[in-house]
Amino acid sequence: MGEPPLADLEAFAAVARARSFRGAAQGRGASPSSLSEAVRRLEARLGLRLLNRTTRSVTPTEAGQRLLERLAPALGEVSAALEALDGLRGSPSGTLRLNVPGIVARVVLPRITGRFLARYPGIVLELTVEDSFVDVLAAGCDAGIRYDESIEKDMIAVPLGPRRQRYVLAAAPAYLAAHGAPGHPREVLAHRCIRHRFLSGTMLPWEFEREGQVVRVSPEGALRANSIELEIAAAADGLGLIYGFEEVLAPLLADGRLVPLLPEWWQSFPGPCLYYAGRRHMPAPLRAFMDLLREPESRWPGAPG
Protein backbone atom coordinates (compact mmCIF):
# COMPACT_ATOMS: atom_id res chain seq x y z
CA MET A 1 0.00 0.00 0.00
CA GLY A 2 2.84 2.40 0.78
CA GLU A 3 2.83 5.46 2.96
CA PRO A 4 0.22 8.11 2.11
CA PRO A 5 1.65 11.40 0.83
CA LEU A 6 2.14 14.00 3.54
CA ALA A 7 0.12 16.55 1.55
CA ASP A 8 -2.94 14.26 1.57
CA LEU A 9 -2.63 13.72 5.31
CA GLU A 10 -2.38 17.48 5.86
CA ALA A 11 -5.42 18.04 3.65
CA PHE A 12 -7.48 15.50 5.61
CA ALA A 13 -6.45 17.03 8.96
CA ALA A 14 -7.39 20.53 7.76
CA VAL A 15 -10.83 19.42 6.56
CA ALA A 16 -11.49 17.33 9.67
CA ARG A 17 -10.63 20.25 11.96
CA ALA A 18 -12.63 22.80 9.98
CA ARG A 19 -15.56 20.37 9.44
CA SER A 20 -15.78 21.90 5.99
CA PHE A 21 -13.96 21.60 2.67
CA ARG A 22 -14.65 25.27 1.95
CA GLY A 23 -13.47 26.43 5.37
CA ALA A 24 -10.30 24.34 5.15
CA ALA A 25 -9.63 25.63 1.65
CA GLN A 26 -9.82 29.26 2.80
CA GLY A 27 -7.28 28.62 5.53
CA ARG A 28 -4.84 26.90 3.15
CA GLY A 29 -5.17 28.96 -0.02
CA ALA A 30 -6.37 25.86 -1.88
CA SER A 31 -9.61 24.96 -3.65
CA PRO A 32 -12.31 22.80 -2.02
CA SER A 33 -12.15 20.42 -4.98
CA SER A 34 -8.40 19.84 -4.56
CA LEU A 35 -8.89 19.04 -0.86
CA SER A 36 -11.78 16.73 -1.69
CA GLU A 37 -9.65 14.87 -4.18
CA ALA A 38 -6.79 14.57 -1.65
CA VAL A 39 -9.15 13.06 0.93
CA ARG A 40 -10.56 10.64 -1.63
CA ARG A 41 -7.05 9.50 -2.52
CA LEU A 42 -6.24 8.99 1.14
CA GLU A 43 -9.43 7.01 1.79
CA ALA A 44 -8.78 4.83 -1.27
CA ARG A 45 -5.21 4.17 -0.15
CA LEU A 46 -6.28 3.27 3.40
CA GLY A 47 -9.45 1.42 2.39
CA LEU A 48 -11.45 3.31 5.03
CA ARG A 49 -13.96 6.14 4.99
CA LEU A 50 -12.47 8.98 7.05
CA LEU A 51 -15.16 11.65 6.63
CA ASN A 52 -18.94 11.56 6.55
CA ARG A 53 -20.07 14.07 3.96
CA THR A 54 -23.55 15.57 3.55
CA THR A 55 -24.69 18.70 1.77
CA ARG A 56 -24.68 20.51 5.13
CA SER A 57 -21.81 19.08 7.13
CA VAL A 58 -18.52 17.20 7.14
CA THR A 59 -17.68 15.12 10.22
CA PRO A 60 -14.94 12.56 10.91
CA THR A 61 -15.91 8.91 11.08
CA GLU A 62 -14.62 6.85 14.00
CA ALA A 63 -11.59 5.92 11.89
CA GLY A 64 -11.15 9.55 10.85
CA GLN A 65 -11.28 10.80 14.43
CA ARG A 66 -8.70 8.25 15.55
CA LEU A 67 -6.41 9.23 12.70
CA LEU A 68 -6.84 12.94 13.44
CA GLU A 69 -5.98 12.47 17.13
CA ARG A 70 -2.73 10.69 16.25
CA LEU A 71 -1.97 12.82 13.23
CA ALA A 72 -2.30 16.30 14.73
CA PRO A 73 0.76 16.05 17.02
CA ALA A 74 2.83 14.45 14.24
CA LEU A 75 1.96 17.17 11.75
CA GLY A 76 2.74 19.72 14.43
CA GLU A 77 6.21 18.20 14.79
CA VAL A 78 6.78 18.37 11.03
CA SER A 79 5.64 21.99 10.91
CA ALA A 80 7.79 22.90 13.90
CA ALA A 81 10.84 21.22 12.41
CA LEU A 82 10.45 23.23 9.20
CA GLU A 83 9.76 26.46 11.08
CA ALA A 84 12.88 25.90 13.18
CA LEU A 85 14.84 26.65 10.01
CA ASP A 86 13.46 30.20 10.05
CA GLY A 87 16.31 31.22 12.32
CA LEU A 88 18.73 30.47 9.48
CA ARG A 89 16.80 32.86 7.21
CA GLY A 90 16.44 35.67 9.72
CA SER A 91 13.11 36.72 11.24
CA PRO A 92 10.68 33.85 11.95
CA SER A 93 7.66 33.46 9.70
CA GLY A 94 4.55 31.33 9.54
CA THR A 95 1.20 31.30 11.34
CA LEU A 96 0.67 31.31 15.11
CA ARG A 97 -2.74 29.90 16.01
CA LEU A 98 -4.01 30.66 19.52
CA ASN A 99 -7.27 29.66 21.21
CA VAL A 100 -8.24 32.23 23.84
CA PRO A 101 -11.21 33.09 26.07
CA GLY A 102 -13.21 36.23 25.43
CA ILE A 103 -11.97 38.08 28.51
CA VAL A 104 -8.33 37.60 27.49
CA ALA A 105 -9.07 38.76 23.95
CA ARG A 106 -10.68 41.86 25.43
CA VAL A 107 -8.33 42.98 28.21
CA VAL A 108 -4.98 41.17 27.83
CA LEU A 109 -4.14 40.59 24.17
CA PRO A 110 -4.76 44.05 22.64
CA ARG A 111 -1.55 45.48 24.17
CA ILE A 112 0.44 42.41 23.09
CA THR A 113 -0.72 41.62 19.55
CA GLY A 114 0.28 44.91 17.96
CA ARG A 115 3.77 44.78 19.45
CA PHE A 116 4.18 41.14 18.47
CA LEU A 117 3.20 41.70 14.84
CA ALA A 118 5.37 44.83 14.64
CA ARG A 119 8.35 42.83 15.90
CA TYR A 120 7.72 39.87 13.57
CA PRO A 121 6.18 41.04 10.28
CA GLY A 122 6.60 37.58 8.76
CA ILE A 123 4.18 36.01 11.24
CA VAL A 124 0.41 35.83 10.84
CA LEU A 125 -1.49 35.69 14.15
CA GLU A 126 -4.72 33.68 13.97
CA LEU A 127 -6.99 33.89 17.03
CA THR A 128 -9.96 31.70 17.87
CA VAL A 129 -12.01 33.21 20.69
CA GLU A 130 -14.08 30.78 22.74
CA ASP A 131 -14.60 30.24 26.44
CA SER A 132 -14.71 26.44 26.59
CA PHE A 133 -11.52 24.48 27.21
CA VAL A 134 -10.27 22.71 24.07
CA ASP A 135 -7.57 20.27 23.05
CA VAL A 136 -5.39 22.83 21.29
CA LEU A 137 -3.59 20.30 19.12
CA ALA A 138 -6.77 18.57 17.95
CA ALA A 139 -8.25 22.00 17.24
CA GLY A 140 -5.29 22.84 15.02
CA CYS A 141 -3.87 25.49 17.37
CA ASP A 142 -0.30 25.92 18.53
CA ALA A 143 -1.27 27.06 22.03
CA GLY A 144 -4.15 28.28 24.15
CA ILE A 145 -4.70 30.81 26.90
CA ARG A 146 -6.79 29.86 29.92
CA TYR A 147 -6.90 30.24 33.69
CA ASP A 148 -5.04 27.77 35.90
CA GLU A 149 -8.02 25.75 37.05
CA SER A 150 -8.90 24.70 33.50
CA ILE A 151 -5.41 23.76 32.23
CA GLU A 152 -4.67 20.06 31.90
CA LYS A 153 -1.79 18.84 34.05
CA ASP A 154 0.19 17.50 31.09
CA MET A 155 0.38 20.95 29.50
CA ILE A 156 3.18 23.46 29.96
CA ALA A 157 1.76 26.73 31.35
CA VAL A 158 3.48 30.13 31.15
CA PRO A 159 2.00 33.17 32.98
CA LEU A 160 0.69 35.89 30.68
CA GLY A 161 -0.94 39.21 31.47
CA PRO A 162 -1.85 40.42 34.98
CA ARG A 163 -0.79 38.05 37.75
CA ARG A 164 -3.84 38.83 39.87
CA GLN A 165 -7.35 39.72 38.76
CA ARG A 166 -10.61 40.36 40.60
CA TYR A 167 -14.32 39.91 40.14
CA VAL A 168 -16.32 42.93 41.27
CA LEU A 169 -19.99 43.31 42.15
CA ALA A 170 -21.78 46.44 40.96
CA ALA A 171 -25.13 47.97 40.05
CA ALA A 172 -26.45 51.19 38.52
CA PRO A 173 -27.55 54.04 40.80
CA ALA A 174 -31.10 53.71 39.44
CA TYR A 175 -31.28 50.06 40.45
CA LEU A 176 -29.97 50.77 43.95
CA ALA A 177 -32.43 53.62 44.39
CA ALA A 178 -35.29 51.26 43.58
CA HIS A 179 -34.12 48.05 45.27
CA GLY A 180 -31.41 48.94 47.79
CA ALA A 181 -27.96 47.35 48.10
CA PRO A 182 -27.05 43.92 49.51
CA GLY A 183 -25.22 44.00 52.83
CA HIS A 184 -23.85 40.46 52.55
CA PRO A 185 -23.18 38.09 49.63
CA ARG A 186 -26.14 35.88 50.62
CA GLU A 187 -28.45 38.87 50.23
CA VAL A 188 -27.55 38.89 46.53
CA LEU A 189 -30.07 36.04 46.14
CA ALA A 190 -32.89 38.48 46.88
CA HIS A 191 -31.88 40.78 44.00
CA ARG A 192 -32.33 40.80 40.26
CA CYS A 193 -29.04 39.68 38.74
CA ILE A 194 -27.41 39.62 35.33
CA ARG A 195 -25.76 36.25 34.74
CA HIS A 196 -23.11 35.22 32.24
CA ARG A 197 -24.09 31.98 30.50
CA PHE A 198 -21.43 30.07 28.55
CA LEU A 199 -22.30 28.49 25.21
CA SER A 200 -22.21 25.10 26.94
CA GLY A 201 -25.08 26.26 29.16
CA THR A 202 -22.92 26.53 32.26
CA MET A 203 -23.42 29.45 34.64
CA LEU A 204 -20.68 29.65 37.25
CA PRO A 205 -21.67 30.53 40.83
CA TRP A 206 -20.71 33.94 42.13
CA GLU A 207 -17.91 33.40 44.61
CA PHE A 208 -17.03 35.94 47.31
CA GLU A 209 -14.21 35.80 49.85
CA ARG A 210 -13.37 37.72 53.02
CA GLU A 211 -10.71 36.85 55.60
CA GLY A 212 -10.66 33.22 54.52
CA GLN A 213 -14.44 32.83 54.44
CA VAL A 214 -15.82 31.87 51.03
CA VAL A 215 -19.47 32.36 50.12
CA ARG A 216 -20.86 30.96 46.85
CA VAL A 217 -24.27 31.98 45.55
CA SER A 218 -26.12 31.12 42.35
CA PRO A 219 -28.78 33.76 41.75
CA GLU A 220 -31.51 32.96 39.25
CA GLY A 221 -30.74 35.86 36.96
CA ALA A 222 -33.16 38.39 35.47
CA LEU A 223 -31.00 38.22 32.34
CA ARG A 224 -28.80 35.37 31.13
CA ALA A 225 -26.49 36.01 28.20
CA ASN A 226 -23.14 35.07 26.69
CA SER A 227 -22.47 38.61 25.50
CA ILE A 228 -20.43 40.78 27.85
CA GLU A 229 -21.51 43.89 25.93
CA LEU A 230 -25.19 43.08 26.46
CA GLU A 231 -24.63 42.28 30.13
CA ILE A 232 -22.80 45.55 30.77
CA ALA A 233 -25.48 47.57 28.94
CA ALA A 234 -28.21 45.88 30.97
CA ALA A 235 -26.41 46.64 34.24
CA ALA A 236 -25.90 50.29 33.25
CA ASP A 237 -29.62 50.51 32.42
CA GLY A 238 -30.45 49.45 35.97
CA LEU A 239 -31.74 45.95 35.23
CA GLY A 240 -29.82 44.21 38.03
CA LEU A 241 -26.56 43.40 39.80
CA ILE A 242 -23.57 42.39 37.69
CA TYR A 243 -20.53 40.41 38.81
CA GLY A 244 -17.63 40.51 36.41
CA PHE A 245 -13.96 41.15 35.72
CA GLU A 246 -12.73 44.39 37.25
CA GLU A 247 -10.98 45.42 34.02
CA VAL A 248 -14.25 45.21 32.10
CA LEU A 249 -16.37 47.14 34.60
CA ALA A 250 -13.70 49.70 35.56
CA PRO A 251 -14.75 52.40 33.02
CA LEU A 252 -18.35 52.31 34.25
CA LEU A 253 -17.26 52.38 37.88
CA ALA A 254 -14.98 55.34 37.15
CA ASP A 255 -17.69 57.49 35.55
CA GLY A 256 -20.44 56.55 37.98
CA ARG A 257 -22.64 54.53 35.68
CA LEU A 258 -22.08 51.63 38.09
CA VAL A 259 -21.60 51.68 41.85
CA PRO A 260 -19.28 49.15 43.57
CA LEU A 261 -20.97 46.80 46.05
CA LEU A 262 -19.43 44.66 48.83
CA PRO A 263 -15.81 45.54 47.85
CA GLU A 264 -14.50 43.86 51.02
CA TRP A 265 -15.81 40.56 49.56
CA TRP A 266 -14.31 40.87 46.08
CA GLN A 267 -12.33 37.75 45.28
CA SER A 268 -8.93 37.85 43.56
CA PHE A 269 -7.46 34.98 41.59
CA PRO A 270 -4.36 34.19 39.47
CA GLY A 271 -4.23 35.68 35.99
CA PRO A 272 -4.23 33.66 32.76
CA CYS A 273 -1.52 31.41 31.35
CA LEU A 274 -0.39 30.51 27.87
CA TYR A 275 -0.46 26.71 27.65
CA TYR A 276 0.90 24.29 25.09
CA ALA A 277 1.89 20.66 24.74
CA GLY A 278 5.49 19.82 25.57
CA ARG A 279 7.15 19.16 22.24
CA ARG A 280 10.78 18.80 21.31
CA HIS A 281 10.44 21.25 18.40
CA MET A 282 8.43 24.33 19.30
CA PRO A 283 6.98 26.16 16.27
CA ALA A 284 9.04 29.26 15.49
CA PRO A 285 6.06 31.69 15.74
CA LEU A 286 5.16 30.32 19.19
CA ARG A 287 8.75 30.60 20.35
CA ALA A 288 8.86 34.19 19.12
CA PHE A 289 5.64 34.97 20.99
CA MET A 290 7.04 33.53 24.20
CA ASP A 291 10.30 35.44 23.74
CA LEU A 292 8.35 38.69 23.58
CA LEU A 293 6.37 37.82 26.71
CA ARG A 294 9.58 37.23 28.66
CA GLU A 295 10.93 40.68 27.82
CA PRO A 296 10.25 43.79 29.94
CA GLU A 297 7.51 45.81 28.25
CA SER A 298 9.93 48.73 27.94
CA ARG A 299 11.71 46.79 25.21
CA TRP A 300 8.58 46.08 23.18
CA PRO A 301 8.23 47.81 19.79
CA GLY A 302 6.35 51.09 20.17
CA ALA A 303 6.93 51.30 23.92
CA PRO A 304 7.68 54.78 25.31
CA GLY A 305 11.37 55.41 25.27
Rank of each mutant, 00 (worst) to 15 (best):
153 K>D: 12
35 L>F: 06
232 I>Y: 05
95 T>S: 09
112 I>N: 06
128 T>I: 03
253 L>A: 04
71 L>I: 08
147 Y>I: 06
287 R>E: 09
183 G>H: 11
44 A>R: 15
289 F>G: 04
206 W>I: 11
229 E>T: 13
30 A>R: 13
135 D>H: 13
256 G>D: 12
142 D>H: 15
257 R>F: 09
6 L>V: 15
26 Q>F: 09
197 R>I: 07
262 L>K: 01
118 A>C: 05
227 S>A: 00
280 R>A: 05
237 D>K: 15
134 V>R: 15
195 R>M: 11
1 M>G: 14
256 G>T: 13
135 D>Y: 11
129 V>G: 04
244 G>Q: 15
173 P>C: 15
124 V>R: 15
122 G>Q: 03
217 V>L: 03
233 A>C: 04
198 F>G: 09
244 G>V: 04
153 K>I: 05
284 A>V: 02
161 G>A: 00
5 P>A: 05
7 A>V: 10
8 D>S: 06
168 V>F: 07
32 P>M: 11
283 P>A: 01
65 Q>G: 13
219 P>N: 09
128 T>H: 11
138 A>W: 02
203 M>F: 01
36 S>T: 07
7 A>I: 05
167 Y>W: 14
285 P>M: 03
75 L>C: 08
274 L>Y: 00
130 E>M: 12
42 L>S: 00
297 E>R: 15
152 E>T: 10
118 A>Y: 02
237 D>M: 05
238 G>F: 11
63 A>Y: 01
191 H>K: 12
10 E>T: 13
274 L>M: 02
130 E>S: 14
50 L>R: 03
218 S>N: 10
232 I>L: 14
236 A>C: 12
194 I>M: 11
251 P>G: 14
154 D>N: 14
242 I>M: 00
166 R>M: 04
301 P>R: 07
153 K>F: 09
172 A>H: 07
217 V>D: 06
291 D>R: 06
222 A>I: 01
167 Y>L: 13
296 P>W: 13
105 A>G: 12
100 V>M: 06
70 R>I: 02
266 W>S: 06
210 R>C: 00
205 P>N: 05
252 L>V: 03
300 W>Q: 05
145 I>Q: 01
280 R>D: 05
81 A>Y: 04
254 A>D: 14
135 D>M: 11
50 L>M: 01
157 A>N: 00
234 A>Y: 07
236 A>G: 02
190 A>S: 14
148 D>V: 08
182 P>N: 00
72 A>C: 14
6 L>R: 07
138 A>D: 08
249 L>Q: 09
57 S>K: 08
250 A>N: 05
165 Q>Y: 01
119 R>F: 02
179 H>Q: 06
186 R>A: 09
52 N>F: 05
28 R>K: 11
58 V>D: 03
192 R>Y: 02
177 A>S: 13
86 D>G: 12
297 E>T: 13
191 H>Q: 07
281 H>K: 14
72 A>P: 00
298 S>I: 07
55 T>L: 11
101 P>Q: 03
70 R>E: 06
237 D>C: 05
285 P>H: 01
207 E>M: 09
68 L>H: 04
270 P>T: 02
224 R>Q: 15
126 E>L: 10
122 G>A: 08
85 L>P: 02
170 A>E: 03
31 S>H: 12
232 I>D: 04
42 L>T: 08
303 A>I: 10
